[in-house]
Simulated assay, not measured.
Amino acid sequence: MTLEHAHGRLVVWCSLLIGLLFELMPVPDVVMPFRPDWLLLIMIYWAMALPHRYNILTAFVIGTLLDVLLGAHLGIRSLAYSLVIYLIVINFQRLRTFPVLQQSVIIGLVLCCYHLIVFWVQFLLDRPPFSFELLLPALSGMILWRWIYWVLRRLRRRYKVK
Rank of each mutant, 00 (worst) to 15 (best):
I56Y: 05
L57P: 02
T58Y: 03
T58P: 02
A59E: 02
A59W: 02
F60K: 07
I62H: 05
T64Y: 14
L66G: 00
G71P: 13
G71V: 15
A72S: 15
A72C: 12
H73M: 11
H73E: 12
G75D: 08
G75A: 09
G75T: 06
G75H: 01
I76A: 11
I76G: 05
I76K: 01
L79T: 13
L79Y: 11
V84F: 00
V84H: 02
I85R: 00
L87T: 11
L87Q: 03
I88E: 02
I88K: 04
I88F: 07
V89T: 12
I90S: 11
I90K: 15
N91S: 10
N91D: 14
N91G: 03
R94W: 06
R94K: 11
R96M: 14
T97S: 08
T97L: 11
F98A: 09
F98Q: 08
F98T: 05
F98C: 03
L101S: 13
Q103P: 00
G108T: 04
G108Q: 12
V110E: 03
L111H: 00
C112W: 00
C112L: 14
C113K: 07
C113E: 11
Y114V: 05
H115P: 01
H115F: 02
I117W: 08
I117Q: 07
F119N: 04
W120F: 11
V121I: 15
V121Y: 13
Q122F: 07
F123C: 14
L124T: 04
L124I: 06
L124K: 03
L125E: 02
D126V: 02
D126M: 13
P129W: 13
P129C: 06
F130D: 05
F130L: 14
E133I: 13
E133W: 14
L134R: 08
L134V: 09
L135W: 04
L135T: 10
L135F: 14
P137C: 06
A138S: 15
L139P: 00
G141T: 12
I143Q: 07
W145M: 01
W145V: 03
W145G: 07
W145H: 02
R146T: 04
R146W: 13
W147L: 15
W147A: 09
W147D: 06
